[in-house]
Design a protein around this nucleic acid. Sequence first.
DNA 1: CCTGTGCATTGATGTATGATAAGAAGTTAT
DNA 2: ATAACTTCTTATCATACATCAATGCACAGG
Lengths: 197, 197
Amino acid sequence: MQHLRIVDYLSSKLHIESDSISTLFDTCILKEIKKNDFLLSENDYCKHTFFVEKGLLRQYSIDDNGKEHTISFAPENWFVTDRESVYFDSPSRYYIQALEDSEVVLIDENFIQLLSEKIPSFTTFNDRLLHNHIRHLQNRINLLLSASAERRYLEFIEMYPDILLRVPLTMVASYLGITPESLSRVRKDLARKNFKK
Amino acid sequence: MQHLRIVDYLSSKLHIESDSISTLFDTCILKEIKKNDFLLSENDYCKHTFFVEKGLLRQYSIDDNGKEHTISFAPENWFVTDRESVYFDSPSRYYIQALEDSEVVLIDENFIQLLSEKIPSFTTFNDRLLHNHIRHLQNRINLLLSASAERRYLEFIEMYPDILLRVPLTMVASYLGITPESLSRVRKDLARKNFKK
DNA sequence: CCTGTGCATTGATGTATGATAAGAAGTTAT
DNA sequence: ATAACTTCTTATCATACATCAATGCACAGG
């Protein structure tokens, strides 16, 4: 099998030799997906965690008025999944779509089980992932409760400067909870302020 | 030691006899705290998970303008903590305060370790708690992104009918991300609509 | 009993953001 | 190269929600 980024990623995070885990991934499925194709749709039962080898994914919901709301972006070396659907075996409320031609490693519960057995530190790492996720979600809630559109945008570019350059502003707006038009105005204001200084 | 709700709670969740875990809690600290007192303040390092035996707690942040934003409410039989601070050993951005005279069990990392060793199913339970937390946070983000103040309020009363009756509306408003005045108007509108029907 | 304090409500007014529409600029397909 | 899309911006108008200020109530403490 070809060389996988996830092997390097895990070997660095788990502080182990990449050789020692490389073979574990021989059975893993590497899936290529074209721009705009879906890995998950609403009402699907999500069965995998996706690790992004290449490309960029977006997770989003669609509300009663047909509007999209971005839950997260996932570039290279990121995990993305609908934990609610996987863990509680419930129909998903989200879509996961490729924003660029991408490659993902499909990781199911059995494989997680395998990793946990073969690599003792993997359990700890997994736990860390969960806590990181919680930290991130809680921080985002706090921002949505307390910060203006402008401040949220500024935090976004600070946190994800790379992503800003790869996705349409429409989707950034839907991540921030505002319309594309509002984001356009926010950017205009910021540009003006920076010019004045 | 007196009888603890957390023992019943865990014995029911873990499907084990309460007698078999009761003694584990002999070393646990049961703390009484008065209304308006704090279990955690901003910049503290949170060292415990709190289990609410009695009373009601609130977790909230204060923004740059001095406004409070409620992160969560915790009534009897709930766990509350700042996972970010505990897990990543970082100064907390939140306050945890008693809204009523309360009693909480203090659970530190050592005790979690002990429970994991003595009760095999506890690890699974703990994992479930984390996933539940994530599910809850993600759903809330989705609501903040997509729903009006009215809809968020309706979801709140559906989800936490009991809490609505125990906390000032000001705090409900700060949970929903609106001002008390706006909440008052939302409620007025709803009352009018229901009357018309 | 009075008085202070906190909470909810209401009205008047202000503002940030939404809705709609249209055009400019960049991108993709034929 | 032209057409057909997307994306982004701008303008106008509309609205949800915020802000500010005042009032009424309930209730706790002296």
